[in-house]
C-alpha cells in the first residue's frame, strides 16, 4: 500500500481524475434541477480522492493533502453553510432571500414542468456548494486517516 499499485492502475486513475471531478461538480451545481445535490456530489469527489489514495499510496498523497488542510476545508464549508443561512436573518433564519429577486439565481419560475434554468433556485445552489465542499473534505479526511493509520509496536 505504501508505494502504490502497478503502472496500469496509476495511468487509468490519472485518466479518470477529470471525468470524475467534472461529474461531481455537475451533480453539485445542478442540485436544484436534477437528482443530486451537495451530499451525492461531495461523495463522488471523495471517491475520486479515495481512488487516488489507493492507486498512489496514501503516505505519498499525504504530503500534498494533509489532515490539517482537509480539516480547514471542512470547517470552511460548514461555516459557509451557516453564513449563507445567517445572511437572510432580517426575515428569518434560513430565509431564501435570493429567490424571485431577479438578481443572481433569482429567476422566478411558476408551477409546472420546464426544461430547467440554472439561474433559478435562490440560495439553494450556494448551500449545495457549501455542503458539497464539506462532505468532500469530511469523507476524504476519514478515508485518508483510516488508510494511513499504523499500529504502534508496544
Amino acid at each position: 500500500m505504501n508505494e502504490g499499485m502497478s503502472a496500469i492502475v496509476k495511468t487509468m486513475s490519472v485518466l479518470l481524475i477529470m471525468p470524475m471531478t467534472i461529474f461531481g461538480m455537475y451533480v453539485i451545481i445542478h442540485g436544484h434541477l436534477t437528482p443530486g445535490g451537495g451530499f451525492p456530489g461531495g461523495a463522488v469527489m471523495a471517491t475520486m480522492m479515495a481512488m487516488l489514495f489507493v492507486a498512489f499510496g496514501a503516505e505519498k498523497s499525504k504530503k500534498f493533502l494533509g489532515k490539517g488542510s482537509l480539516s480547514t476545508i471542512e470547517s470552511l464549508g460548514l461555516l459557509a453553510f451557516a453564513a449563507v443561512a445567517f445572511i437572510g436573518i432580517q426575515a428569518t433564519f434560513f430565509s431564501n432571500f435570493l429567490a424571485n429577486s431577479a438578481s443572481y439565481f433569482g429567476m422566478s419560475i411558476s408551477y409546472g414542468p420546464n426544461p430547467g434554468y440554472l439561474n433559478s433556485g435562490g440560495v439553494l445552489p450556494l448551500m449545495n456548494l457549501a455542503v458539497g465542499i464539506e462532505v468532500f473534505a469530511a469523507i476524504t479526511a476519514i478515508v485518508l486517516v483510516m488508510l494511513t493509520y499504523r499500529e504502534e509496536k508496544s
Binding site: 442540485g31 436544484h32 434541477l33 436534477t34 437528482p35 445535490g37 471542512e74 470547517s75 460548514l78 453553510f81 451557516a82 443561512a85 433564519f93 434560513f94 431564501n96 429567490a99 424571485n100 439565481f105 433569482g106 429567476m107 422566478s108 419560475i109 411558476s110 408551477y111 420546464n114 430547467g116 433559478s120 433556485g121 435562490g122 440560495v123 439553494l124 448551500m127 449545495n128 455542503v131 464539506e134 462532505v135 469530511a138
Partner: peptide, 29 residues
C-alpha cells in the same frame, strides 16, 4: 414559486427544513 427550485427534495432539504440539514452537516463534521 417560493424557492425557485425544480427539485422539490432540494427545496425541502435546504429551505423548508434547513435547520435539519444544518444539524446533519454538523453531525458529519
Amino acid at each position: 414559486s417560493e424557492t425557485g427550485s425544480n427539485n422539490v427534495v432540494t427545496g425541502v432539504l435546504f429551505d423548508y427544513r434547513g435547520l435539519d440539514t444544518l444539524g446533519e452537516a454538523s453531525v458529519l463534521f
